[in-house]
């Protein structure tokens, strides 16, 4: 089974990279753009077909290594 994990900085943590990208796109003329948060994306393959087990395993991966829960949020999607 394939899983996508997206990690972004929490809302109250300053994201200077996102800000720079936002300002650059605004300067390029994207006038309707109001905010950008930059993050990380992982594609994970697991040899397991039970969705519940896969979600639980990936959740544990996020908590133990992939995300720093003090500053980051994560989102798991089965793809």
């Amino acid at each position: 089974m394939k899983v996508a994990v997206t990690i972004t900085l929490k809302k109250d943590v300053l994201d200077p990279q996102g800000k720079v990208v936002l300002h650059t796109l605004q300067n390029m003329g994207m006038k309707t753009l109001s905010n950008i948060r930059q993050g990380k994306y992982f594609e994970i393959e697991i040899e397991e077909t039970n969705q519940e087990i896969v979600k639980k395993d990936v959740d544990s991966m996020c908590k133990k290594l992939l995300a720093n829960l003090i500053i980051e949020d994560y989102k798991i999607d089965i793809i």
Binding site: V13, L14, P16, Q17, V20, N68, I70, I71
Partner: peptide, 16 residues
């Protein structure tokens, strides 16, 4: 910090 022995986080420098 990453082991949790010290609390908090070290982010990228504000000026990148």
């Amino acid at each position: 910090i990453e082991t949790g022995l010290l609390k908090g986080a070290l982010l990228r420098n504000k000026n990148l």
